[in-house]
Nucleic acid binder design. Structure first.
Lengths: 282, 282
DNA sequence: GAACCGTGTTCCGCAATCGGGAACAAGCGA
DNA sequence: TCGCTTGTTCCCGATTGCGGAACACGGTTC
């Protein structure tokens, strides 16, 4: 469906092709939250069964996947789980969990946590709204920079060279209100930097609005974005002051746990910036 | 150094070569617990810088790694962290953490948690002994089946086809006491199955002994091994009955949390076997 | 300031490698 | 038993990634 329609900018190729496919396979299984078979994967990724099978074999051999002998289908293996344990800095997902829940309970909207990736704003975790009707995004998906509040926030507070590279890319139009020109996006970034949050009314889907605020670490680097998602009726384009305040407040709260705003070498409640963790206790 | 010296059984090759290298790069960085540079990686993995660089680029592009602009070196990225969240069954590492700590405090030995991989017993987590002198293993490393208590336990309780495939492999000799013949190993597996635990005195390193007991899920599948490591003076070859009892007891305790021994559909304190987890709450 | 390392990055041609496609085996239900 | 679907294997040929070397750049040391 959404196959990489070779844009102008990837002259350097997209990297190592086989690795790309291997990661596609891995992610397809991981983010489906279920086991998948060779045939399913083959048609989902639009490659031959033989190719998928070879990659599956490699990933199983390495312990990243496991073939369920009963169903003959493939699932995430132990090695994949292990990778996360070695993240150089404290786990954003874990730290943000409690504040996210509080924010959700307070505002009622779906809450989303994202991080920067060259491809967009990676959805790390979501917390469904209190409403019976769910409006959300799938963890693992990558939201486009130009058409999401998270993407715009992460971009606005990213280092200059990163901005440059991304701004040069063509922008796909999703709705009438999607930003499609570089100038427009740059102006938006300036505004976001000034006001400390972003909103993206109907930029990717009509009727839906998203608002996002940045999360910083102890060196003022933007390491993520906290966002709320909702129907535009409840999350209007010109946002309610209380809502904005709450969002920014919780984002700041998470930032503080990473040592932001107190200089390097934080207090006791702070997550150690670069803790050496070598055991399960980590 | 240890490049695949084409054994008899891998006629199908070792899988997709580029993917192998990509994973090597990823793991080298992950399990080093630190940032690594192109040159370091190139010599560690014994490939050219150009090659490493291309793979690094791909992994960064996909969000699995991040290049630190300050040091220009590479570290684990957000996507790697995310993968772990999508493990199909409850996180063994997390569930085992508390029992591991109790066992460590009770016996004083280093405690290790492992899972099965085609290459060996993957070390998921360790908890250092109470002694000032540390005897342990690096999380992420894969212990050989024939020369580790964990490997032997996992193999003993693995499905028959898996056993077959592994038993056919040649066995490297580490010490005088390493098991190197198939017959010897098979006899050992029978004994392990009967007595419910394994020990591996001086099989990989002189002076060191390891004892391991299996962890089961609700369907009696062996999903891991709990082990204690120590100098052979304190963890003798003919083990103390109390020590064995404690090890088996804690392993069973973890198994119980996965619903083992009460049939499918466990009680409230049980980890749900296949919980649908789609949010940070998972 | 210049020569010197040590990085990370880029380039290019050759050959191995992976992908396409189709045939094969194996389970399952009708 | 026959069909349908699945996972697995095979082989050929062009693509693609590898090796090797050159390049750019920053920090040190004379």
């Amino acid at each position: 469906m959404r196959k990489d329609d070779s844009t102008t900018e990837d002259r350097a190729g997209a990297g190592v092709r086989s690795v790309q496919l291997a990661l596609d396979v891995l992610e397809a299984i991981a983010f489906s939250g279920d086991e998948l078979g060779v045939t399913q994967l083959a048609e989902k990724l639009d490659v031959t069964k033989g190719s998928v099978h070879r990659h599956l074999h490699t990933l199983v051999e390495r312990g990243y996947l496991v073939q369920n002998p009963a169903t003959t289908r493939y699932a995430i293996g132990p090695k994949s789980r292990l990778l996360a344990r070695f993240a150089p800095d404290a786990d954003l997902i874990q730290v943000a969990e409690a504040p996210m829940r509080e924010l959700r309970d307070r505002l009622g909207h779906t809450v989303v946590l994202s991080a920067l990736t060259p491809r967009g704003a990676l959805v790390l975790a979501t917390l469904a709204s209190t409403s019976p009707i769910e409006i959300g995004v799938r963890p693992g998906s990558e939201l486009p920079f130009h058409a999401s509040a998270q993407g715009k926030v992460l971009l606005a507070f990213a280092p200059r060279p990163v901005q440059e590279r991304i701004l040069a890319r063509p922008m796909e139009k999703f709705t009438e209100r999607t930003i499609v020109t570089r100038d427009h996006l740059e102006a938006e970034l300036v505004r976001i930097t000034r006001q400390g949050f972003a909103s993206a009314p109907e930029e990717v889907l009509l009727g839906i609005n998203v608002m996002a605020a940045p999360i910083f670490d102890e060196r003022d680097g933007c390491i993520g974005a906290l966002a709320i998602v909702g129907s535009i009726q409840y999350l209007p384009e010109t946002p309610d002051a209380d809502t904005v305040a709450a969002l920014k407040d919780y984002a700041k709260q998470i930032s503080r746990r990473f040592g932001h705003g107190r200089g390097p070498g934080g207090a006791s409640t702070t997550v150690p910036p670069r803790a050496a963790r070598r055991s399960a206790a980590g």
